[in-house]
Amino acid sequence: MTFENFEKDYREKGSKLIAGVDEVGRGCLFGDVLSCAIIMKEDSNIEGINDSKKITANKRKKLYFQILEDSLAVGIGRANSKEIDKLNIKMATHLSMVRAIENLRNSKGEVVTPDLVLIDAERIETNIFQHSIIKGDENCYSIACASIIAKVYRDNLCLKWAEMYPGYGIERHKGYGTKLHRELLKKLGPSPMHRMSFLKNLERW
């Protein structure tokens, strides 16, 4: 896949540490919205990188480790269902993105602060210069890398959440409002990790 050269263009203008930022889980009925911020090596060019939604689960897992190995720093940020209900999903997503940037660490565990963040279609509260890119996970390499890390990381969390709250099929639908999920909600009622602000918009789930 061919990406636009956002990173190259900004490097030529003097930016050195460029972080791509993307989220996953925004439309779920259950669990955290989760973001990844990632700074890739300048010469990184991993074959097969694409928007995480357009890649199979097996391919995402393989790329996950390649991306981590080819990165300078990675940060994960989360906002839980209570924060989503309190703030609304847009603001909670922004919070998770800010946390991801603040959590950027290199392989030694040292804090890394980017001088530029490239974000998928959002503008967030940060003093760091930011560029919002429409369809960023399709058009920007580092955002696409962030989308894959975020997706695999959250899918792994879903397996743990499924053990914490058995019977909802979280390991299968990953918290999205599938027919199966809604049917199980009718049977069991919501768990402490369900987003009540989302459920009230459904007709008895």
Results as ranks from 00 to 15, higher is better:
D51V: 05
S52F: 09
S52Y: 11
S52T: 11
S52H: 09
K53S: 09
K54T: 12
K54S: 08
T56M: 04
A57D: 08
A57P: 00
K62G: 00
K62C: 02
Y64R: 03
F65M: 00
F65Y: 04
L68Y: 02
E69P: 01
S71L: 03
A73T: 05
I76V: 11
G77C: 13
R78V: 07
R78A: 06
A79K: 04
N80F: 05
N80P: 10
S81Q: 14
S81K: 08
E83F: 10
K86I: 08
L87V: 09
K90W: 06
M91H: 09
T93P: 02
T93C: 01
H94C: 04
H94T: 01
L95S: 04
L95N: 01
S96I: 10
S96G: 09
M97T: 10
R99Y: 15
R99I: 12
A100N: 15
A100Q: 14
E102H: 12
N103G: 07
L104Q: 05
R105I: 02
R105V: 09
S107W: 01
K108D: 12
E110W: 14
V112N: 07
T113K: 15
P114H: 09
D115N: 13
I119N: 02
D120T: 00
D120A: 03
A121P: 11
E122Q: 15
I124C: 12
T126A: 14
T126G: 10
I128L: 02
F129K: 15
S132F: 13
S132Q: 13
I133Y: 04
I133F: 04
K135W: 03
K135Q: 06
K135F: 02
E138W: 08
N139W: 08
C140S: 12
A144P: 07
S147D: 04
I148V: 15
Y153C: 01
R154E: 10
R154H: 10
D155E: 15
N156L: 08
N156V: 00
C158E: 08
C158W: 13
L159R: 14
K160M: 14
W161G: 03
A162N: 15
M164C: 01
M164G: 01
Y165W: 13
Y168K: 04
Y168E: 04
G169L: 08
I170F: 15
